[in-house]
Simulated scan of single mutants.
Amino acid sequence: MNVPKPNWGWASLPFLLLLWIALASRYPSYILPQPWDVAHEAWHWLRNGSLWKQFKVSLMEELGGFVTAVVVALLAGTAGGLSSRFRDFTAPLNSLFMAIPPIAWAPLTMIIFGLGYFSIMLVIFIAAMFPMAVTIQEGVQGIRGGEVHTARTLGANQHQLLAYVYLPASLPFVTAALRIGFSQAWRALVAAEMIGATQGIGWMVSMGGQIGNSSQVLLGIVLIGLIAWLMESLVFRHLEQHYQKWRV
């Protein structure tokens, strides 16, 4: 009988919290505040309704850019996996856009489109779309030819091949692509908001640094990490585990 190994992941956050308290005790609170100072700052933002407002702005920008990137990546990745000509055509573009840090596009988008929703959404789209498209393309391309041949022998048409062969076989790669894409999109969102936004969680961090409010800076950092961790733990990890058996 195999005894399951204990999962020590639960200990990492308390360890990080204790490390934070120990480090903060060596500095004045205006330089490195304690967790309870940040909690007090969070209560201040919650009480006047500003925290929800900043979160809602970031959420709308994230959803707009990420959902658009998912749709385009699904189309481009599937087309690249099925067509060698399309794959050859997009290969240099994928390499180029994935090599450039997404935040490098932020100043240009803001010069062209101005500050606001569309500029930040475009940076998020660029950050997320290309890694997702490449991951999906590799998944579709890796589907075994024997499965396709068997389906064709049984009389499957192109639509049935997509629905009953390519889609189930590529779902693990699609979920992995979503996980990668969201991570890239979230980082790009925060960085773009820090450069050129007047609202949002990234703006909170940037503005806190400008006015010397360390508690506000750390509050924004904690929110950024917490939201990413919740999405990873509650959504993407479960999706990936659910479809992992479909790789076989």
Score class of each variant (00 low, 15 high):
Pro6Glu: 06
Ser12Asp: 11
Ser12Ala: 15
Ser12Cys: 11
Pro14His: 00
Leu16Thr: 07
Leu19Asp: 00
Trp20Phe: 01
Trp20His: 02
Ile21Thr: 02
Ala24Asn: 02
Tyr27Pro: 03
Tyr30His: 12
Gln34Tyr: 12
Trp36Phe: 15
Asp37Leu: 14
Ala39Tyr: 12
His44Arg: 15
His44Asp: 15
Arg47Cys: 14
Asn48Pro: 12
Glu61Gly: 02
Gly64Lys: 14
Thr68Trp: 13
Ala69Asn: 08
Val70Phe: 09
Ala73His: 04
Ala76Val: 14
Gly77Pro: 04
Gly77Thr: 05
Gly81Tyr: 02
Ser83Lys: 09
Ser84Thr: 13
Arg85Gln: 13
Phe86Thr: 02
Leu93Val: 13
Leu93Gln: 07
Asn94Gly: 12
Ala99Cys: 09
Pro102Gly: 03
Ile103Trp: 03
Ile103Asp: 04
Pro107Phe: 12
Met110Tyr: 11
Phe113Glu: 10
Phe113Gln: 11
Gly114Arg: 11
Leu122Thr: 11
Leu122Gln: 05
Leu122Gly: 07
Val123Lys: 00
Val123Phe: 08
Met129Pro: 10
Met132Ala: 09
Val134Asp: 04
Gln137Lys: 06
Gly139Gln: 07
Gln141Ala: 15
Gly142Phe: 11
Ile143Asp: 12
Ile143Cys: 06
Arg144Lys: 10
Gly155His: 06
Tyr166Met: 08
Leu171Ser: 06
Val174Trp: 01
Val174Arg: 00
Ala177Met: 07
Ala177Val: 05
Ile180Phe: 04
Ser183Gly: 15
Arg187Ser: 07
Ala191Gly: 02
Met194Cys: 05
Ala197Met: 09
Thr198Ala: 13
Gln199Lys: 14
Gln199Arg: 10
Gly200Ile: 00
Gly200Ser: 06
Ile201Val: 08
Gly202Ser: 05
Trp203Ile: 08
Gly208Cys: 09
Gly208Ser: 12
Gly209Tyr: 13
Ser215Thr: 09
Leu219Ser: 05
Leu223Tyr: 02
Gly225Met: 02
Ala228Cys: 11
Leu230Ser: 11
Leu230Phe: 11
Met231Ser: 08
Leu234Met: 13
Leu234Arg: 15
Leu239Glu: 04
Leu239Gly: 00
Glu240Thr: 06
Gln241Pro: 00
Gln241Val: 03
Lys245His: 13
Lys245Ile: 09
Trp246Leu: 04
Trp246Met: 03
Val248Glu: 12
